[in-house]
Amino acid sequence: MAAGVGELLRRLPQVGAGLGLGAVRLPEPAASGDFTDFLRVGACSGQSPTVHAPSPNDPELDHWIATFRGPLVGLIASWGATWARAEELAMDTFAEAWLGRDRFVGDRSAPNAVGPWLRGIAFHLLAADRRAQRKAPARLDAEPVAPTPAEPGEQHERLRAAFAQLRVEHQEILRMHYLESTPAGPLAALLGISRKAVEGRLYQARIALRERVARLVPTGGGR
């Protein structure tokens, strides 16, 4: 089994390159829990990820992923999933969408049509995932965990603490935007609101975050 995993890891970059995805950067096992998450992908799909998965080689799918990957992961994380689970569910979402693309009656090249569709699939997959896990599920609108900074430091700890104090919709828009610096268009499509509303919400979220960070900054002198 362990040999199989090693083989998998060795071959992954070639797989990604073969798929025209560019060099696939392997996650550092020691540095992140994402590596084990990645292994679960194979378990979840019922097949080893070592398979030379034939790419759908579909520019449409590539376009969807490039457009919605970051905000979709952020959105699912905002619904209460862990970051690792959110990423897996986003993969599931794109796979389901691509397999069921013939059922989609809208314009598949229009982000405004595809966004709500992906959001719907993701929501149902998350609900199904929770049912399958049979845990006491967190409410969908429960406040999710704040992101963990890549380089922990005092400023980042403060920012993280301030982020956790934000309103749910402010957290949501920040996750969706800053995860991959996604522009307002895909965010608007996923949330079903206008670009102006997204920009306004982002602006308000930044202001609120700055205020909360300011409150957390020691005033100096102490008591």
Binding site: L12, V15, G16, L19, L21, G22, A23, V24, R25, L26, P27, F38, V41, G42, S45, Q47, P49, V51, A53, P54, S55, P56, L61, D62, I65, A66, R69, E87, E88, A90, M91, D92, F94, A95, W98, L99
Partner: peptide
């Protein structure tokens, strides 16, 4: 991005 695309492809 790469790992994500591989994950999607594997699922499909």
């Amino acid at each position: 991005a790469g790992r994500f695309a591989v994950g999607v492809t594997a699922r499909i």
